[in-house]
Amino acid sequence: MNIKILAGIGLTFILLSCEKELDIHEPGNLVPKTVIEDLSLPSISVNGTTLHAETYGNPDSSLVIFLHGGPGSDYQNGLNVKQLADDGYQVVFYDQRGTGLSQRHDKNNYSIQLYLDDLTAVIEHYRSSPAQKVFLFGHSWGAMLTAAYINAYPDRIDGAIFAEAGGFNKQLLDEYGEASRKLNLFSEITNDVLFYDQFLTGRENEHEILDYKLAIASSFSYAEGNDEGIEGPSAFWRNGATVLQAFMDIAENEGFDFTTNLNQYQTKVLFLYGENNKSYRLRFAEKEAAFFPKSEIIQIEDTGHEMIYFKWNSVYPVVLDYLNSLN
């Protein structure tokens, strides 16, 4: 009997030993493939990179370019915005360089100017005539990028929507960061983003493992009682950990200020904020809106930072009214 049991255990060990292990660096195992590895994904090649991108609506209509958050998130949680295609707009989505399903690059490749150049290239790619209007719709980091673009090129954009920009300069970014990223060292959710550092470590440009690590840390953002009022998990394909780190280093080492020319932008801009985001609120929206000569601030009821994903029905009419007023 004992021999049979031992043989059974031994056989189990052998069978387990024969199970093929998976490669942590192989795209498609822990993270989805990018446009470089999966040619069936919609993409555009611009400014020396390949971006995961798609559009909805009539190509001759005014462009609404959605700029997702992060840095390092992707546009999946903003796809509700495509409803604007039914209202006569061409809605453009793209995963910013190094994020989502777009091509990865080494960390030293990234700069704010490169991201602005990418956006210029995206606009040129989709714009069918010089008369075609271009609107930017930025969420979180995407709203910061929107400000950066208008600050650099105030005459190129016909209107802008800012959904809870994380800060138009380093000072405001720090202010928002301190308000929204409070850590309780003894809590489970804090442990969830710290303890796994001994399981997973990626070298600087090992994108698969670093992106995956960032993905499983995402549960931190929607933990119960989070200050940003995020209701739960929202969809994304793949984070870009390297680009996030690159921009964090840039912000820390060089600082940034996207506000120096915003007072030259005479078009009215729209600010949105979620009622439940304790870190943002009307006071922060007013600080950011004050950089522009003309602005409107709207509170979206009963939601937080991920208002586009969770409360699109409330965001949509406000955004549509604004766009129609300028179109």
Binding site: E19, E21, N29
Partner: peptide
Amino acid sequence: IIFTDVKDGWYE
């Protein structure tokens, strides 16, 4: 929410 085709298993 994130990746439908993620592969569970032993990784090396």
